[in-house]
């Protein structure tokens, strides 16, 4: 187990370097200096140079080969150093450190996305188990058709239609705001519905992959009830793909939902990111992208280690 953990931890290094490199190339090299954005179109050459010098945009990109300066005093290595210290630069829009902006958004985002993922997973799993139990029947076919229809509705339409009908026309939910839990009900409902189609199809395939295995026949021959087999045996064994699938949505818990948060006035990371994109505040976008990617690594690591602890086939295979 320890050997597996160490090996898995070492595998983290190249991907993390890759993520840092990709983010750096996209935002710092292709995106370039934010001097123009911050100082405006009419900035003088001198003020742009001063800005670049102040924020280190005048340094070499990857390796510093200038006389008398450290090799690692380059934009890339300074970027890594700053990230390691939790310093993501200044937001040009908010005029404060990016980290402070992000910290404020985490709470509201989690209050939206956590119930969304939990409800969505439970509902999807229940329907998928129903499909598997009654496979080939009317219920199964009905759910399959419904899930194809659900996943073909555009996400933008889900948000607009949900707000228009349920909040504006029929006045079941509040239209906009972030005051109490009830304000979250509609965005959570929309979020669950918009991803339900894909979820059901994935869960159903995962369960059906198990249901034809010999141990199911054995359990059946032993006289166990269908429900007991489905819940105690089949579900347990199909948990590996299901847990992987669900755990991959954990980074999304953090980055939040761009449209839902913006349209329902939830001051989370999703609306912060969308604002940042609209105002070309690249420092904030870069921080959310980078943190989301790094979180993905951590979640992946934890899930893999959990499997290895629970299932010897993983660490030996």
């Amino acid at each position: 187990m320890l050997r597996y953990a160490v090996r898995r931890l070492l595998e983290l290094i190249p991907t993390t370097v890759g993520i840092l490199l990709l983010t750096f190339v996209l935002f710092n090299v292709v995106g370039g200096s934010s001097a123009q954005v911050v100082l405006g179109k009419n900035a003088t050459k001198a003020s742009i140079e001063a800005f670049n010098k102040r924020y280190g945009y005048d340094k070499p990109l990857i390796l510093n080969t200038r006389e008398g300066e450290s090799v690692f005093d380059s934009q890339f290595f300074n970027f890594i150093k700053n990230v390691a210290r939790g310093d993501f630069g200044m937001s040009t829009e908010h005029r404060e450190p990016v980290m402070d902006v992000l910290k404020r958004g985490v709470g509201p985002t989690l209050s939206l996305t956590a119930p969304m993922v939990v409800c969505g997973t439970l509902l999807g799993l229940a329907l998928a188990l129903g499909c598997a139990a009654l496979r080939g029947g009317a219920f199964d076919k009905g759910v399959l058709v419904m899930s194809t229809v659900l996943m073909s509705v555009n996400y933008v339409v889900w948000v607009l239609a949900g707000q228009f009908f349920l909040a504006y026309k029929w006045r079941i939910f509040p239209i906009w705001g972030y005051e109490n839990a009830f304000y979250l009900a509609l965005p959570v409902l929309i979020g669950v519905l918009s991803s339900l189609g894909v979820d059901i199809r994935f869960f159903r395939t995962a369960v059906l992959d198990e249901i034809y295995k010999p141990y199911v026949r054995t359990a059946r021959a032993k006289g166990l009830s269908r429900t007991a087999i489905l819940v105690k045996h089949v579900l347990r064994n199909s948990l590996i793909p299901i847990v992987t699938y669900v755990s991959l949505s954990i980074p999304y818990l953090f980055t939040g939902s761009l449209l839902l948060e913006t349209f329902f006035g939830i001051p989370g990371l999703g609306s912060v990111s969308l604002n940042a994109i609209n105002s070309a505040d690249l420092a904030v976008v870069r921080a959310v992208v980078l943190l989301g990617a790094l979180l993905y690594q951590v979640v992946n690591l934890v899930t893999d280690l959990a499997y290895a602890a629970l299932d010897p086939r993983v660490r030996l295979g």
Binding site: F27, T255, L258, I277, L282, R286, V289
Partner: peptide, 11 residues
């Protein structure tokens, strides 16, 4: 590893 939609938007 990149957060899908946000990464596409950034590009």
């Amino acid at each position: 590893s990149m957060p899908g939609l946000l990464f596409i938007l950034a590009i």
